[in-house]
Design a protein around this nucleic acid. Structure first.
Lengths: 206, 206
DNA sequence: TACAATAAATAGTAACTAGTTACTATCAAA
DNA sequence: TTTGATAGTAACTAGTTACTATTTATTGTA
């Protein structure tokens, strides 16, 4: 295996395997489960291989976070683009797709990174520009897909962010609830968000 | 020190110190920083003392979570009760107090427990009844303080929960942002929540 | 005061952690 | 085909983890 690959190809291949292993471990074990041994085992490599390409474990994790910040947005748009073309596209549809995508593995990985940032100063510092990049990219691309009346609201950016945060807060609370409770809560929340969004007007300074 | 204390008093004293140490470590280091050594050092005790009163570390953490589930609610009501008596009490005031309280150390500790529950099965199982208890107690006590028109809405329970989750999602996103960004976002979000809450009506099934 | 019972401290354990080392395998250009 | 660079491995380090067995300190009771 790995025969007749150029050095550059081998490197790209290995780093990709490591990125995917980091995401898998973030999803299944959380940030503290992202150890060199577990990542290497998941990627089918030795722990030494990690340090051939990254100075520290955190560097690999941050490299993965950086890639996640765009992958997540693209993932959403890959799922919502077909809906738009089929003519069934409305704000409800977008929000439901958003709710759905935010429960994907990549978003759980992202959530673990955000939470770990609170108590890990060096991680937080490295995450700051990545979080901003993610936010800007999400806003930019969402203008391509969301209905005009929504996008053109004066508080559109704040509003969209609030919605994202609301969904995320909802997700988090569900970790300790039963399947049935999660389903009921999710359904209510989805209706609530749709209603609020559709009927929302600019939020004035108090 | 600890002179002329009964055994029961000594035990209660020690367990209280351990509970407070767990919260402190959850806040400053996160769930993975809640190690026997760090907790014992914070409490001014030895690691052996932990195992004198609890079979496992997780048992101590769960005992702390159980106490947190009521302390958090009481903390909110201790802060909001004086406002009500001063006659300046409205929904805006309650929501602002809520937003404030949810950034307290106890809530950060609670957040860490929720997140850790996602990837830690035994913790999640132990947290489930505690989370339900917290929710029920919060709903029960909130009826004492929130304005009648809000409490009497048919979807009051779902609505309040959605608000709590929204605030929590907002908090989480702020971990990787600057002070200034956090302030701006918080102010917008507060206005948004107040507006939505005041103008909300029952959410109908779709 | 003698003696039992409980509380807490001390000093371990095996299994884990991030990172390093010496080494081999592969690739690429001369 | 020789030479040098890069990629990857297995075994190691020093330190940390939850937990335990043993010892010492304190309290309760006769």
């Amino acid at each position: 295996m790995n025969q007749s690959l150029s050095q550059a190809e081998r490197t790209a291949n290995t780093i990709n395997k490591l990125n995917e292993a980091v995401i898998e471990k973030l999803v299944t074990l959380g940030y503290s489960g992202c150890t060199t041994q577990k990542i290497a085992a998941e990627a089918g490599l030795s722990t030494g291989a990690i340090f051939r390409h990254f100075e520290t474990l955190q560097e690999l994790i941050i490299d993965t976070a950086d890639k996640l910040s765009t992958w997540m947005v693209d993932d959403y748009h890959n799922k919502i683009a077909p809906l738009k073309n089929k003519g069934v596209f409305e704000l409800d549809t977008s929000m439901e797709a958003l709710y759905d995508v935010m429960q994907s593995p990549m978003h759980y990985a992202w959530l673990e990174l955000l939470i770990a940032s609170r108590t890990n100063e060096s991680l937080r510092e490295a995450m700051q520009p990545i979080v901003r990049k993610n936010r800007d990219y999400a806003l930019q691309r969402s203008r391509e897909y969301l209905p005009d009346f929504f996008v053109n609201q004066p508080d559109f950016e704040h509003l969209l962010e609030s919605l994202l945060m609301q969904i995320r807060g909802d997700m988090m609370h569900q970790f300790a609830l039963s399947e049935q409770e999660i389903k009921e809560k999710g359904e209510f929340h989805m209706r609530y968000i749709s209603m609020m969004t559709c009927s929302s007007k600019s939020v004035q300074p108090s």
